[in-house]
């Protein structure tokens, strides 16, 4: 049986510090768009998740 986490936000990557408040998952701050994309790509590969874009400067890595 598969017991891995699914449908779960694994990480939040953003450069808009005031839009994200603490929660159940780690928040990674980036200085610009480029760093945000790179960090989220790496995190997605490491965690086995998918990067989603909330279109307000917040990326999140989610496991499906």
């Amino acid at each position: 049986m598969n017991t891995a986490l699914s449908e779960y936000v694994l990480a939040i990557i953003t450069c808009e510090t005031d839009k994200v408040k603490g929660g159940g998952c780690p928040v990674f701050l980036a200085s610009d768009q480029e760093e945000m994309e790179k960090t989220s790509l790496l995190l997605a590969r490491i965690l086995g998740g998918i990067v989603h874009d909330l279109e307000n400067g917040i990326y999140l890595v989610c496991k499906h």
Binding site: E37, S40, E55, Y59, L60
Partner: peptide, 20 residues
């Protein structure tokens, strides 16, 4: 459409990364 992947007028999923 923005970050939403569509086939014609059907929403498939949200894709974050520009290279993807």
């Amino acid at each position: 459409e923005g970050s939403l992947l569509m086939v014609d007028d059907v929403v498939i999923m949200n894709v974050g990364l520009p290279q993807t």
